[in-house]
Design a protein around this nucleic acid. Structure first.
Length: 667
DNA sequence: AACATTTTAGG
DNA sequence: CTAAAATGT
């Protein structure tokens, strides 16, 4: 099918090497490379400042490498990628479009729609896997169902009957299509107020595919060997630093996999077991990235709803003061505060410290996890919706194989584990720099004379603990008790068919958002005890908007606006509800809930956007739209069967993935 | 050296 | 919680 020219639509695959869509375009003849900047499509998840900075650099580098090959990158500013693509097609006379798959819920729906529209316009559309070792629908258990635990998934990935595709070389030359009627538009990725902070980033980071290659090579020949040993230190120096490169697809994960695997074979032959083990651990973290896409594909709501339903009944503490103290690194727990200061200053955090600060956020402060996830999204250089959603769900105990729900980590002990000499804390909390190591992770226990000698006045230049750990533990127990009670009550109500749902209060009273979400590190008066009266909310929390002006004109947002927005985005996204009939046989040995579930699904169906079911080629999974580029064969289960989770043993009835379309919706 | 006890890691 | 590893007797 040679002839007309092809569009290659770049998204998060900003590389020329091992880029199947680009390769296909080159094979087909003339190529027009396009990047469309349409951040409004991302809804809540407008990229943060550092992420946009990275994208800008990366696009510039991609453009220059495309120029070396014979074309350039056409950039378009848009609010609707699909219509922009149509315009590009129209102005260039292209007849084909090639792109690489994405797996976040918004992309799944948009790309599916795009494929339908373009196909109906006579454009040949082909898409490829460029982001994963295996497509999500390739990795299934012996019964042909998707895995619900990471180990199951990853073991299967590593023992697939066929290897991941080998990385392809970049094209030698690209024949450019006619760009005379398709001018680039200037993309603005930063505003004036952001330029100063962004200038600092360039000192530490080098975006772009060629730099990604260098980072990969440097990691493999350097820190990889000691990865196992160093992985528990707070210090980031021994990590691969590949995550932002991988997020934007500047380096192919298949290339990473192959090169690392080669190194492993080498070490194995030398009898270097430490190196072998290091590779296994590093590959595991690559595997988690794969798994995040896998989960996002199979559970398209996982970035906004807990995968285990009982979390719906967790009484989150909605407290601006807590949230602000956490963001500013003023919780009074040195390891947490150091991490939050580093995040703010650099956009980077070691994986271990991410676990510490997010665990503190959920378990100690009991703030709604999606707020924390949103803050990560706004501040992390490697912000990645799928990975971050998986991470926060893991921390929050909402995955079958996540951390136990009642586990609460003590930052003091973790401090001595990950930062035994206090170097990390001293680097990011200069006010504690003179405190001896003995007290560095629990200054509140230090004798007065020690504090004086170190120039510390607790509650003045460094906060007292925002809440004591024993109080936090008691409060968490209490919250969990309440959660199970509400969960049981709700279930009882459902079984009795009574329509006075407890869990439904969210419908009427959404969480009010803090008005002031500024993230500045100001010297506000310290709130060591932000709340005396604890406000709890029984609902699935919503996300506060912190990207004020950029998303929606900077106006104030009433909670109802946000509720509407949430509803809107919900309507666009595949819904995760209902079991299809093929599941009946498998699930009927669980609890006798089938009729109820089915009734709920039917009620849901009434509320589904009709556009979802209009397309003749759309296929249903979970009742949601499946991209046409995936086989529809996967019969999907909505029930987690985590026998390996202690919680599921204690609360087997709570193991259903909840039907999030309002349990007691009056239909 | 064999076994009991404690600590740690765990996706 | 459980399994494995580290430590102690």
């Amino acid at each position: 099918m040679a002839g007309g020219c092809s569009i290659v639509w770049f998204r998060r695959d900003l590389r020329v090497e091992d880029n199947p869509a680009l390769a296909a375009g080159v094979r087909a003849g003339q190529v027009i490379a396009v990047y469309i900047w349409a951040p409004e499509e991302e809804g809540h998840y407008y990229p943060g400042r550092v992420s946009r900075w990275w994208l800008k650099q990366s696009l510039a580098l991609l453009d220059s490498s495309l120029k070396n090959l014979g074309t350039c990158l056409v950039t378009k500013r848009s609010t609707d990628s699909v219509s922009s693509l149509l315009e590009v097609i129209k102005s260039t006379g292209a007849t084909q479009l090639f792109f690489n798959h994405l797996y976040d819920p918004l992309s799944l729906v948009r790309d599916h729609r795009m494929k339908e529209i373009l196909t109906s316009n006579g454009i040949a559309v082909r898409s490829f896997n460029a982001d994963l070792l295996y497509e999500p629908w390739e990795v299934l258990d012996d019964e042909g169902r998707p895995f619900n635990t990471f180990t199951g998934f990853w073991d299967r990935c590593l023992s697939m009957p066929y290897d991941p595709e080998s990385p392809q070389l970049p094209p030698k030359k690209i024949i450019s299509g006619d760009l005379s009627k398709c001018p680039s538009e200037t993309l603005v990725f930063e505003d004036e107020s952001e330029k100063g902070s962004n200038a600092l980033l360039a000192r530490a980071w080098s975006p772009g595919w060629s730099n990604a290659d260098k980072a990969l090579a440097a990691f493999i020949s350097g820190p990889l060997l000691e990865y196992a040993k160093n992985r528990r230190k707070a210090d980031s120096a021994t990590t691969s630093f590949l995550s932002p490169h991988l997020h934007f697809g500047e380096v192919s994960v298949r290339k990473v996999f192959h090169l690392v695997r080669i190194k492993q074979v080498l070490w194995a032959n030398e009898g270097n077991t430490a190196g072998e083990e290091s590779v296994n651990l590093f590959l595991k973290s690559i595997g988690l990235r794969e798994y995040s896409r896998y989960m996002s594909f199979n559970h398209p709501y996982s970035h906004e709803r807990p995968l285990l339903g009982h979390l719906k009944f967790f009484p989150w503490i909605v407290d601006e003061g807590y949230f602000k103290a956490w963001r500013q690194g003023r919780t009074g727990y040195p390891l947490v505060d150091a991490g939050m200061r580093e995040l703010w200053a650099t956009g980077w955090l070691h994986d271990r410290i991410r676990v510490v600060v997010s665990s503190f956020f959920v378990k100690v402060l009991q703030l709604p996890w999606r707020w924390g996830m949103k803050y990560f999204w706004d501040t992390l250089l490697d912000a990645d919706l799928e990975s971050d959603a998986l991470g926060w769900q893991y921390i929050s105990g909402t995955l079958p194989d996540g951390r136990e729900f009642d586990r609460i980590d003590n930052p003091q002990f973790e401090g001595y584990k990950f930062d035994p000499n206090g170097e990390y804390v001293r680097r990011w909390l200069p006010e504690l720099a003179r405190l001896p190591t003995e007290w560095i992770h629990h200054p509140w226990d230090a004798p007065e004379y020690v504090l004086q000698a170190a120039g510390i006045e607790l509650g003045s230049n460094y906060p007292l603990p925002i809440i004591k750990m024993d109080a936090a533990k008691a409060r968490l127990q209490e919250a969990l008790t309440q959660m199970w009670q509400h969960e049981a009550a709700s279930r009882a109500i459902l079984e009795n068919g009574i329509e006075e749902g407890l869990g439904d209060s969210s419908e009427d009273s959404p969480i009010a958002f803090p008005q002031d979400m500024e993230m500045e590190m100001d010297e506000n008066t310290l709130r060591t005890n932000p709340t005396t009266t604890t406000i709890r909310h029984y609902e699935d929390q919503m996300v506060p908007s912190m990207t004020t002006s950029l998303v929606r004109g900077g106006g104030e947002e009433s909670s109802s606006d946000l509720a509407n927005l949430a509803e809107d985005s919900r309507a666009q996204v595949p819904t995760n509800r209902g079991v299809d009939n093929t599941q009946t046989a498998r699930t009927d040995n669980m609890q006798p809930q089938m009729d109820i579930t089915r009734a709920l699904r039917n009620a849901d169906d009434l509320t589904v956007e009709s556009s979802n079911s209009s397309g003749s080629s759309s296929r249903e999974r979970d009742g949601g739209v499946v991209p046409v580029w995936s086989p529809s064969t996967s019969s999907f289960t909505e029930t987690f069967v985590g026998e390996d989770s202690s919680y599921s043993q204690r609360h087997p009835q709570s193991h259903q993935l909840i039907n999030w379309r309002r349990l007691s919706q009056t239909g």
